[in-house]
Design a protein around this nucleic acid. Structure first.
Lengths: 355, 355
DNA sequence: TTGAAAGCGCTAACAC
DNA sequence: GTGTTAGCGCTTTCAA
C-alpha cells in the first residue's frame, strides 16, 4: 500500500531537550501530578509554546488505559430528538475536554454490541447509550469490564446502569388526560414496535389515564408497527377505518408523524375536527405544520448535559445514581382541538382569501 | 483521584500463548501482512475466538501512527442538513471499519482550529470538514502535516484540499430564474452572514439570473445577517417594509426559514399571495408547512458518501480530486406561487370548513 | 515460514 | 525537586 506519510509532531522528548529538563519533568509540569519548581515549569511552558507541542492522545491513552473520548450510541442520529441530544452532549463533553464518537444502532442489538466492542477497543472513558430494545445485546459487557456507562432517554430495568430519563408514563398520561378532559372517549394509540422502556412506559401512562377516568381500554385502538412514514400511514388508516373510529389519537414517536398526516390527507379528514392529535416529542415541525401540533415535550438538552455529568462523575470514581425522571411538558397547540395556541396559519390563510 | 479501574482485556501475548505461537505470528495472521501457514492461522483464529480477543485500537494507532477514526467537523450538527450528512458519513465510514468523531465549530475558526488539533492528537486517519468562513483558522495545518483532508459542502478557494460540493451558483440560479419566469422583478435575497463559499456562490447565482433576464440588481433587496430565527425575522421585516416591497424572496439558509415565517405572520402577509418564497436546502419542515415550501435541494447523502470515499482514497495514498459539483434540484411546492405541488393542507382546510 | 526484539510517545514508580 | 527507566499492546524489521 502506498499510504500517505504523516509528518512527525514534536514529542515530549524534544520539549524536554528544548527546556533543558528531563522528560519526567515535562510530564509532571504538564499534568501537575507532582511539584515542579516555577522556574522549570516556565521553561517547559515556553518550550511547549515554541514547538506547538501537543501531547499524543494515543500514547497517553495507551499508558493510562483510558482516553478522553466518550462513546455515544443512539438508534438514529437523524432523529431530531437524538440530534438535539447529541449536540448537547457534544457541547458539554467538549467543555470538559472530551471528544465524542458516534454510533447509530438502528435499533439493532447486534450493531449495538459491535459498536460497544469498537468503543472499548478505543478505550473510551465512558459510554452514553440509548439502548436498543430487546435482549441479546449483552449490553452490560462494558460495565463488567469496569467501563462507566449511563443510559440516556431509555433504560433497561434490572441492570445496574444509571439512567437519565424523562417521565414517560407522565408524558403519555398528560396527553391522554388532556384528550379525555376535552371529551374524547375513543383515543387511538400509535406505537413504534421498539421494545424499549420508553414505549412501554408511555403505553402504561395512556392506560392509567383511561383507567382513572373510567374509560374502558380497547385494544383495537392500539396499533404497533414499524416507525416509518409509510407504515405509520398504514397503521393510522387501520385506525381510521374502524367501525367506530377514534376521535383522537396519541402518537408515541415523532418518527411516525408524517405518516399520520399522510393518512389523514388520503382520507380527507381534517385535524382536529375529525381527529384530534397529540404527538410525542416536540420538534421544529410541530410548530409550523398546519394545524400546529400539540406535543409532549422532553427537556432534551438537560438530559444530554446530565448524562455527560453523570458519566464524568463515574469516570472520577463517584457512583452516579439515576436522577428522578425529568418532567415532560405538554405544549398545547391546535391539533388537539383544545383551542389554545395561536391559529397561526389559519389567520394567514383567511387573510389570503380575503385579499 | 479515586478513578474506576478497568479490567484488562486479553492482549496479543495471551493469544500467542494460547495458540502456541509467537506474538509476531498472531499479528501476521490477523493482519494478513505476511504468509502464515494454514495450521498456525487456524490455531490463532481459534484462540482469538475463545478469548474474545479484540486488538487494542490505541496500541495499533500508536504504532502505526494512524487510527481507524475519521474526524468530522461541521458548524452545527443540529442543522438538519449536517445531521443528514453526518448520518451518511457515519454509515459509510462504519462500512469500511472507521469510527467518526464529531466536532461543532459554530462557524468559529478558533473552535475549528482547536478541534483540528484535538483530532490530530487523536491521530485520525482523515478529516472531513465543512470549513467555517473567514480566515485565520490555519485550516490546512493538517494538510501540511500530511493528514488527509477533504472539504464537504463548502470549500476554500486557493487551498489544495479536494472538496465535494453542490453547485451553489446553479442552485440559486434555478430558484431565481424560476421566480423571474413567474413574473417577479423585485426578488429579495436573505443571506446568513457566514463568509463561506456556499453563500458567495449562491449570491452569484442570484445575480447571474437577474442579469440574464435584464432585471437590475438592487442592493437594498439583499439582506445579510445572523442566521437565527429572530435576526432572520428582523431582516425579513426590513425587506417587507421597503417602499417598494419585493414580491418574492430567496432564503439562502434553512436556518432562517422560521424567522421569515414569523415576519410574514407578524405583518399579516400571506405566502405566496403577498410574497413568493423559495428556500435553500430541503427539509422535513418544507413539505408540511403551510404553504409547503418550494426548495432548492442538495444530494446530501451522496455528498457524505462521496466525501468518505475520497478520504478513504486519500488514506490509501491515492490523490482524490474534487468531483464536478453535484447538481442541485428545485422542488416546486406552493410557496413560490407557481401552482405545482399539491395544495395539500389547503384541501384539508377546505374540507374542514365545509363540514 | 516463524520468532525475537526494538520501539511508537507517554506515565509513573522509584532512585537520586 | 528532578531524573532514569520500565513498560502500555502492538507492528515490523531482521535473523534464524
Amino acid at each position: 500500500m502506498n499510504r500517505v506519510t504523516i509528518q512527525r509532531a514534536p514529542g515530549i522528548a524534544e520539549v524536554a531537550r528544548r527546556a533543558g529538563v528531563s522528560i519526567a519533568t515535562v510530564s509532571n509540569a504538564l499534568n501537575g501530578s507532582k511539584y515542579v519548581s516555577p522556574v522549570l515549569r516556565r521553561r517547559v511552558e515556553e518550550a511547549v509554546r515554541r514547538l506547538h507541542y501537543r501531547p499524543d492522545s494515543l500514547a497517553i491513552g495507551l499508558r493510562r488505559r483510558r482516553t478522553r473520548v466518550l462513546g455515544l450510541l443512539v438508534s438514529d442520529i437523524a432523529n431530531p430528538f437524538y440530534t438535539e441530544l447529541a449536540r448537547a452532549i457534544e457541547d458539554r463533553a467538549a467543555g470538559s475536554g472530551y471528544q465524542v464518537v458516534l454510533g447509530n444502532t438502528d435499533e439493532d442489538v447486534h450493531k449495538q454490541r459491535e459498536y460497544l466492542d469498537v468503543f472499548l477497543a478505543l478505550h473510551v472513558a465512558g459510554l452514553i447509550v440509548a439502548p436498543a430494545g430487546g435482549r441479546g445485546g449483552d449490553i452490560d459487557g462494558p460495565v463488567r469490564r469496569g467501563v462507566p456507562m449511563v443510559f440516556v432517554n431509555r433504560r433497561i430495568p434490572g441492570l445496574r446502569v444509571p439512567a437519565v430519563t424523562c417521565d414517560n408514563r407522565q408524558g403519555a398520561y398528560l396527553a391522554t388526560a388532556h384528550l379525555l378532559t376535552a371529551g374524547h372517549r375513543r383515543i387511538g394509540l400509535l406505537r413504534p414496535d421498539w421494545l424499549t422502556s420508553t414505549i412501554a412506559e408511555r403505553t402504561a401512562g395512556y392506560r392509567r389515564a383511561l383507567a382513572e377516568r373510567e374509560c374502558t381500554y380497547d385494544p383495537r385502538l392500539v396499533r404497533t408497527g414499524s416507525a416509518t412514514r409509510s407504515a405509520a400511514a398504514e397503521l393510522t388508516e387501520g385506525l381510521l377505518t374502524l367501525p367506530s373510529r377514534p376521535t383522537a389519537m396519541l402518537v408515541l414517536s415523532s418518527a411516525m408523524v408524517e405518516g399520520v398526516l399522510d393518512a389523514l390527507q388520503r382520507r380527507r379528514l381534517a385535524c382536529p375536527e375529525d381527529l384530534a392529535l397529540i404527538v410525542y416529542n416536540d420538534q421544529r415541525l410541530a410548530e409550523f405544520v398546519a394545524p400546529p401540533l400539540t406535543c409532549v415535550t422532553q427537556p432534551t438538552r438537560d438530559m444530554g448535559v446530565t448524562a455527560v455529568e453523570m458519566i464524568l462523575a463515574a469516570i472520577d470514581g463517584r457512583r452516579p445514581v439515576s436522577p428522578v425522571p425529568l418532567a415532560p411538558g405538554l405544549v398545547v397547540r391546535r391539533s388537539c382541538g383544545c383551542g389554545a395556541g395561536a391559529p397561526r396559519w389559519r389567520r394567514a390563510f383567511r387573510h389570503a382569501k380575503a385579499s
